[in-house]
Design a protein around this nucleic acid. Structure first.
Lengths: 240, 240
DNA sequence: AAGTGGTCTAGACCACACA
DNA sequence: GTGTGGTCTAGACCACTTG
């Protein structure tokens, strides 16, 4: 079937997708319910199987249905839902808040990997670059960042001073990564941290640790500590 | 999509995907680089255009490339990366930790929506169900949960006592939602909270708030507070 | 053994953005 | 105009799984 010219906004496979999704959302097709076979939808929409397959593939990607060979396609039984956080680098984050970004480079050390570095970067040996910096939003401390970079994976970092450009954006532009793991915790400020972040001792902070890989090679480990008073994370739902 | 976890032979479109991805990952094709035209890939892999198109569609979904009509397909310029948290209900979460789950229903109130309820559920009027419960992991307080349910969207909840099944799993099974927003913050325990969670006053806690909708209808708002000492969130990278 | 989804082909027409 | 991606067809063979 050719597409009827004129008033066709959505593609046919989008229409099929939406129709099935509506049936699931309304509860008409509860979890575990078998949706029509592909060949039935083919007849119902008077289209080829490829089009039906593409529609269902989209629903599979979003976790609405599961395909089982020889049995059919079924409304998925949700057991978890997924929430996504968009992590921008701190500079971008502060800009998006409409505040003026600044940062101080506190420490920049190039050295052989210590036991700490080896465990956090999951490497056996090699040289690393350790960086510490304090990010400001309109003059107020916004986050303390401690980072180590695996120089075997990112040798170019040796040549960068990081006194004018923070390491986050630089890495964003220079290194492509394939995997990252984050750990989000809550801590209270000890006197040293409180002094740096200009908050009260015992104040709540959010700690974000991130390990980053390109394929199997560890790129960087970073720990960012934010005063909780003016910081929270927001995450949006995605089905899958 | 076919998940080739084992020693499966990858499909042709998977091979094309992986080849392109490898070129992007290695840096051979930097951000902004135009990847080969579809008809070129068609020749290179000796396959039909549909197969190439399917491969590229997968890369678009994962945020690796962008297609532009009349111009070609280009390596995407990353400006943020996305991390996903899998939220299970607390009962499942505790079970997955290998601990014994239990909970106490502290409060169950059915009432007309107050100003608090109306702002948190984004409704003008109506009846709501307020629930408070304390979750335990092997006998230790694991999380304090405060929840309100919009009875206009979930009238069946009226008939449920929630003294044997916690509200999270019940909602999971009975209501399908389309959108959710989460806010993750760090707080310190005041004396009341410390007493309930059996932690020290001033101890760090992670607070997770969640607003849930089905299409435009607000379903539930929930706030969970976890002692930070034994709790953190982990998030995995997804390109898009 | 039968019927499902998984993948693929070799075409086709279209809208669109750029030259 | 021209050539790109966007979508679709009407078949086909295969692997898998379950009745």
């Amino acid at each position: 079937m050719k597409r009827t010219d004129g008033k066709d906004e959505p593609s046919l496979n989008d229409r099929i997708k939406n129709d099935i999704e509506a049936n699931i959302m309304s509860g008409a097709w509860p979890p575990g319910h078998r949706i029509p076979y592909e060949h039935e939808l083919t007849q119902q929409y008077n289209c080829s199987r490829m089009t039906v397959s593409k529609a269902i593939a989209g629903l599979v990607d979003r976790g609405f249905v599961e395909r089982k060979k020889r049995a059919g396609t079924f409304v998925a039984i949700p057991n978890a839902h997924r929430a996504c956080i968009n992590f921008f680098d701190v500079r971008t984050e502060v800009s998006r808040l409409g505040k003026i970004y600044d940062f101080d480079l506190i420490e920049r050390i190039e050295r052989k990997a210590t036991a700490f570095d080896r465990s956090h970067l999951d490497i056996r040996a090699g040289n690393i670059l350790q960086l510490a910096c304090l990010h400001f939003a309109s003059g107020k401390p916004y986050a303390l960042e401690n980072r180590i970079i695996n120089l075997e994976q990112v040798p170019e970092a040796c040549a960068v001073a990081f006194d004018h450009e923070p390491p986050g954006p630089w890495l964003f532009e220079h290194v492509r990564w394939s995997d990252a793991r984050h750990k989000i915790s809550a801590i209270t400020a000890d006197p040293g941290l409180a002094n740096i972040l200009q908050i009260k001792v015992g104040a709540a902070c959010i700690e974000i640790e991130r390990w980053t890989w390109r394929n199997k090679g560890s790129i960087t480990y970073v720990k960012q500590i934010h005063p909780a008073e003016h910081y929270s994370l927001s995450a949006e739902f995605v089905a899958r």
